[in-house]
Amino acid sequence: MTGNQIAFLVMAAVALLGAAGVVAFGANAVRAALFLVLCFFVLGFVYFSLGAQLLGITQIMVYAGAIMVLFLFVIMMLQLRGHDLSKKVGIDIKSPLAWMFGIALFAVVFQSIVLPMNMTANPAVTSDLGKPEAVGSVLFTTFSWPFEVTSLLLLIGVVGSILLAKRRI
C-alpha cells in the first residue's frame, strides 16, 4: 500500500462520513449542512492529492466557502427546526425510489471506478495538467466557446435573480 493510497483512503472515509452525516442528521438542517461542508472540504483535498490543485481550491472556495454559506444563511433565516422537515404527507414513494436509484448509482460507480482503482497505486497526475496555467490555457484556447457560453449562462442567472428579487427596477 503506497502513501498515496493511504491518504486517499483516509480522505475518502472522512468525505463518506460527511456525506452519511448529511442524511443521518437530516432532521437538523444546520448539522446536515455542516456535514455537507465537511464532505466538500475533504473532497477538495482528494483533488489536491490527485494533482488537480486548481479544481481542489475551486471546490473549497465555491462549494465549501460560498454556496454552503448561502445554504446556512437561508436555513438560519427560516429558523428551520427538525419537525418542520420530517412532516409526512400521504404515501411516501420517495424512500423506495431513493434506495433503487442509490443502489443503481453505487453499482455503476463500483463497476467503473472502485474496481479499476484497486490496481492503481499512484493515481496522481504526473504532468502539470491540474495547475492553473494548464487549465487556463486550455480554457481560453480549446474550450473558449463553452467557456463563453457558460459565462453567458451565469449572466442570465444574475439578471434573472435580480428580476425575481426586485419589484421595481
Partner: peptide, 25 residues
C-alpha cells in the same frame, strides 16, 4: 509553496464566515 497561493488565501478567508455564523446560530 503551492501554485495556487493567492486562491488559497481567498478560499480560506471564505471559510472564515462559518465560525461567526455558527456561533450566532
Amino acid at each position: 509553496n503551492i501554485d495556487i497561493g493567492l486562491l488559497y488565501v481567498l478560499a480560506i478567508s471564505s471559510l472564515g464566515v462559518y465560525g461567526v455564523v455558527l456561533a450566532g446560530y
